[in-house]
């Protein structure tokens, strides 16, 4: 097993933390992992993306040209990364933020209205966990337990009261793509 994915969106959407949570979860399950952000001068509002690799064997390169999965949370990211999904790969996008949907026919495409779902749960910031849940139901890379272990590391301790709502969001996302 070797999953190479890109997660991309606006800064503040939880792009980097989603990737980091997944990387932690992979490590909890004793897999080889790499997380590499596209870091830039931009902060909130600018574009942000990270590559995550979870593998049974040594990760050769954190720098990759094409991806098994792209998770995109805004229009500029879709335009940048749709063409870089491997044929037969997966593209998951946040359908409330993306007006012009992807058009490729040779990949699996899933639209997730994660912003609306997160608001239903009562915490808009769990949008990233809904998307992550949707991804995991199609590509069961790691268990929910491992994700929650990872989230404990990524969320500062003062926010650990938010772990249950994040778990709820994760499971809601999994249901959406069952």
């Amino acid at each position: 097993m070797n999953e190479e994915l890109i997660i991309a969106g606006f800064g503040g959407q939880g792009v980097l933390s989603m990737g980091m949570t997944l990387a932690y979860a992979g490590m909890v399950e004793d897999k080889q992992v790499a997380w590499i952000p596209s870091y830039g001068p931009e902060m909130r509002g600018g574009t942000a993306n990270c590559t995550v690799i979870v593998s049974d064997t040594r990760v050769s390169s954190p720098i990759i040209s094409s991806y098994d999965t792209a998770i995109v949370l805004n229009q500029p990211s879709l335009e940048k990364f749709e063409s870089r999904v491997k044929p037969g790969g997966t593209l998951i996008y946040e359908s409330n933020n993306i007006l012009n949907p992807p058009t490729r026919k040779d990949i699996n495409i899933y639209a997730i209205p994660a912003t609306v779902e997160a608001n239903k749960i009562g915490n808009a910031k769990t949008m990233n966990m809904i998307i992550l849940g949707a991804f995991l139901s199609k590509t069961p890379l790691v268990s929910v337990n491992s994700i929650m272990e990872g989230l404990k590391k990524v969320l500062p301790e003062r926010h650990h009261n938010l772990l249950p709502v994040n778990e709820k969001a994760l499971k809601r996302g999994m249901e959406l793509l069952k």
């Binding site: 980091m20 990387a23 490590m27 080889q32 992992v33 790499a34 997380w35 590499i36 952000p37 870091y39 990760v59 954190p62 720098i63």
Partner: peptide, 10 residues
């Protein structure tokens, strides 16, 4: 380099 500094691995 910047990428090795910024990236996370175990």
């Amino acid at each position: 380099d910047g990428a090795l500094g910024q990236m996370m691995e175990s």
